[in-house]
């Protein structure tokens, strides 16, 4: 007890507590930095329309109707195409856990084969965008600079300049792209899931889509030449860090200057 009391009375105690708080703040921001690499799954080409119809009746029909014609709880899926099904189900957004303003990304409950079967059945109802081929999403040799420009013109307004997402109206949001696979990114541009607009191949050519995917993957996996990225949220986290850490430093300096030397 005497030891801790002496420690408290030590003239260095107050500045030390502030330094500790400063370090803790820095460490907390470091923890924000997260980047998870997504695993690119193989596409199954062998599909079974009948298996898809069965899976649909089990897992999807309560909201979308037995023939995907739509109900008051869910929209019609006639003509949405295989790409929309593959995006929604492989990213775990469908089936939704609860009715809500927006379906969040979660672990998919279906296997690759099951998703392919579901997609094949929905695609058999009416023509729609097909699942992009491996060639469509091959980013080898893609122009990163062009991808960055196209991303900033077409995507960054909602998904943030580094793909970290952002808020929309009424509780909706543009999700971050940290876990989206190349195929899912392509499918999202092609089909416009939820409130995202469509960026069709005619108005945003395949070449640019590939470059955009390459840019997103570079932002996700590339180096941070400027040091700690603070979550890549730009002025929000950077400003908060500068104000908090900067003020703590100034207080420590003011205390040191103001305390009379012994």
């Amino acid at each position: 007890m005497r030891f801790t009391a002496a420690l408290r009375r030590n003239r260095l105690a107050a500045p030390l507590v502030m330094v500790a708080a400063l370090v803790a703040t820095g460490a907390a921001y470091a923890a924000i930095d997260s980047s998870t690499s997504a695993v690119q799954a193989a596409v199954t080409t062998e599909t079974s329309v009948t298996q898809g119809k069965m899976l649909f009746a089990e897992g999807c029909s309560s909201c979308h109707g037995l023939n995907a014609e739509g109900t008051t709880d869910g929209p019609s899926l006639i003509g949405v195409g295989a790409a929309a099904v593959d995006f929604q189900v492989s990213s775990g957004r469908m089936p939704m856990a609860t009715q809500g303003i927006q379906a969040p990304r979660k672990e998919s409950i279906y296997s690759e084969e099951e998703i392919a079967a579901l997609a094949a059945w929905v695609a058999s109802l009416a023509p729609g965008p097909a699942i992009p081929t491996d060639e469509d999403i091959n980013t080898a040799g893609a122009n990163l600079a062009e991808g960055g420009e196209a991303f900033r013109v077409n995507c960054a307004q909602c998904h943030n300049f580094a793909g970290q997402g952002g808020a929309l109206t009424g509780g909706k949001y543009a999700p971050n792209l940290n876990k989206a696979t190349a195929r899912q990114i392509y499918e999202a541009m092609l089909t416009g899931p939820q409130n995202m607009p469509i960026f069709s191949d005619e108005t945003l050519p395949k070449e640019q889509k590939r470059a955009i995917i390459a840019y997103i993957e570079e932002m996700r996996n590339g180096a941070n030449p400027g040091g700690l990225d603070l979550g890549k949220y730009g002025p929000v986290t950077e400003g908060l860090f500068a104000w908090t850490a900067g003020f703590l430093l100034l207080i420590v300096a003011a205390v040191w200057i103001g305390v009379k030397a012994k």
């Binding site: 420009e149 196209a150 607009p197 469509i198 960026f199 069709s200 005619e202 108005t203 945003l204 640019q208």
Partner: peptide, 17 residues
């Protein structure tokens, strides 16, 4: 992004340019 003219009939409902 590409400075190409836009074919009106190639724009699906829900599209943004």
């Amino acid at each position: 992004s590409t400075h190409e003219p836009i074919k009106a009939d190639a724009i699906p409902v829900g599209n943004l340019i």
